[in-house]
Amino acid sequence: MSLSGKEGGCDCGAVRFRIEAEPVVVNCCHCRQCQRQTGTAFAVNILVKPDAITVLQGDPAPHEHPTPSGAGQTNFRCSDCGTSVWSIYHAAGDGLRFVRAGALDDPHAVTPQVHIHTTDKVDWVAIPDDMPSYEGFYPGREIPAIMGEDNAKRFARAVGRG
């Protein structure tokens, strides 16, 4: 899936951005926080390094949220319409941005590679049998199988473990 060069933005058009590199991984998170923050059953997150996002217009405003890990999350939203465009999950450090796939101009360009926090999954969502899924976050030993060796190394460097 090629996402480099894909653009997106908020609902009102005040914030526009472009992804400048291929993602480390794309996950579908079913946790209650993602459900509440997106107002739907899950969030599809495109994990990229901070320098892989170019803001073309506007200035997404940070909003702090608690997380079950206790590390917290900064969710960047349009100041005008409130659309979430990306987040930083502090448990993963500051080396990754979790771009909301629904904020892309073409969300059809994105396919999740893994489903996480499925203990909170709503019953009507069906995960394909051949799709990796985890009750919580995927364990470290599973990362190379999910992301591939090169992206696993990129992930480890981004979260300060490599």
Rank of each mutant, 00 (worst) to 15 (best):
G136M: 05
V48C: 04
S4H: 07
T74S: 10
H90G: 09
T74E: 12
Q37K: 05
F155N: 01
T119N: 10
G102S: 12
G93T: 11
D150F: 04
T38D: 04
F137E: 11
T67E: 08
I53T: 07
S2V: 12
E142K: 01
S69F: 09
R157V: 15
D130N: 11
G140M: 10
Q33F: 08
C31D: 07
V125G: 01
F155Y: 13
F155E: 02
V26I: 15
N75A: 15
V55I: 15
G72I: 15
L47N: 01
G72K: 07
N27R: 02
C29K: 02
T83V: 13
I19Q: 01
T38K: 03
Q35R: 05
T111N: 07
A71K: 08
V24C: 02
D51R: 13
I146F: 01
R18F: 05
T74N: 06
S133A: 15
T40S: 13
P107G: 06
L47E: 02
F155G: 01
C31K: 00
N27G: 10
V44N: 02
M131C: 10
I116K: 01
P60Q: 06
A92I: 09
D11R: 03
V85T: 06
V114G: 00
R77F: 08
M147Y: 03
W124M: 06
T38Y: 04
V159E: 03
P68T: 13
G95F: 00
V44T: 09
G8V: 12
V125C: 06
I19F: 01
R100N: 13
K6F: 03
I127Y: 03
T40F: 12
C78R: 01
S133K: 00
G8R: 02
D51T: 15
A145S: 09
A145R: 11
A41H: 06
